[in-house]
Amino acid sequence: MTRVAYLGPSGTYTHQAAIQQFGVEDNEMVPMASIQKCFSALLDDESISYAVVPAENSTNGQVVFTYDLLRDYMLVTPNAARGCMIPSFAIVAEQYVAVEHCLASPLPMTADELKKADIDRIYSHPQVWGQVGKYLEELARITGKALGRCDVESTSQAVDRCLRDYRENNRVSLAIASALACRLSGAHIVQSHISDVADNTTRFLIIQRRRQESLQILPGRQPTPSGERIHLVAFTTDRQGTGSLTDVLLVLKRYGIDMRSITSRPFRRCSTSSKWQYVFFVEYQDQVDVNWDNFHAEAVALCREWCHWGTFYRNNRYYS
């Protein structure tokens, strides 16, 4: 049996991503209270084979909690060679989940009843607010006031808090979560499909412990027909100043490597007073005609740290 840690509780979009990747037969999905605990479980619990964490959303960008953890694990990893780092785990697959937010209530409720109800708060994950901004404006118009936004660790936890408010205090609160979370918890869906963008999608990374017998690049349940593979690396530049990032990216251009994405997260090195330092995350396509040894030698020479986080198949949901 394969045990998979994911950002819980059950019913989260991460839970759905884990099911898409591994299925439910002969697998145990292990919910974790935070993204940090997903990483910790994978590193510390030998019974956990994989972890599934959210990485970015098509509407409001990267999940900073995940990228900051990748940054932090990278920066504490000893160098294997000049600037080269091999962390304790690797990214071996990706999944995409259509985000279809719902407005949930502990009671069945019509739009008229919603208008009359004494409601002052709404729960959800912080990433959600930017995905339902227009709907929240409409909700404020319906209720006659802007509801207090309460951040929780996950959309499933938002439903749990909503139900607990009613069960323990007879208070009607609302939550924004997935239909799966509502169904599993017994909450009532007041309105479905409330995202501002109809095709809102979240991308998830599947991570495996490196010290297992061997890394396996997972094809997933819906592999790309082309078998396209993607590399994810993170690096810091060897110097500050004009052109330091450009110098690294020009190496990709010289070797004809197709870069698919780039993002960054700030950090501060203890040995310097500068506040404006960054770890860059770059994804690029695996290509058979590239001399990868020469490419890596040139790129790493321009970096202070270079970490190859993994190689994985591009999921075909990326294109749809």
Rank of each mutant, 00 (worst) to 15 (best):
M85V: 15
E113P: 07
V251K: 03
S173F: 09
V300E: 11
N170H: 14
P87Y: 08
L69R: 14
V64P: 02
R209V: 14
G130T: 02
I230K: 00
L147T: 06
L136K: 08
C307N: 09
Y318N: 13
M259R: 06
S214I: 01
S178N: 03
K253F: 00
P266V: 10
I230A: 01
V64D: 14
G243M: 03
I19W: 03
V4R: 03
V128I: 13
L147G: 10
R211H: 13
H296C: 12
Y284K: 04
S195E: 05
D112K: 14
K275E: 05
E113Q: 14
A55F: 11
V190C: 01
G61P: 00
R221W: 12
M1P: 14
E228W: 08
K37C: 02
I119Q: 05
V190P: 03
S264M: 08
H125L: 03
S195W: 04
T66E: 07
D286V: 07
F22E: 03
A140Y: 07
S244A: 15
A90I: 08
Q287L: 14
T59P: 01
I119H: 07
A41E: 07
P9H: 00
G83S: 09
Q216F: 06
D151Q: 09
A175D: 07
T202K: 15
I207C: 12
R82F: 09
L205C: 05
D293G: 10
Y255I: 01
V300P: 00
S185Q: 08
L174E: 06
V64T: 10
V63E: 05
M74V: 15
R314Q: 14
A146L: 07
C307F: 09
R254F: 06
A51Q: 05
T14F: 02
I86D: 03
D258Q: 12
Y313K: 01
V30Y: 00
D118I: 07
V132F: 03
N170F: 05
V63T: 11
V92Y: 10
Q240C: 01
N316A: 10
V251Q: 11
A104D: 09
R268A: 09
G144F: 05
L232A: 10
A198G: 08
A175T: 09
A93L: 11
A18G: 13
I176N: 02
V197R: 06
N27G: 00
P54M: 10
E283A: 15
G8E: 04
E138D: 11
Y135E: 06
D160I: 12
M85Q: 12
S49V: 03
Y135L: 08
P219C: 00
H193D: 15
T155N: 06
V152Q: 02
S261P: 00
A18C: 07
S49G: 15
A181E: 06
A51N: 07
V30A: 05
M1D: 10
S154W: 00
K275P: 04
A41Q: 04
P78W: 00
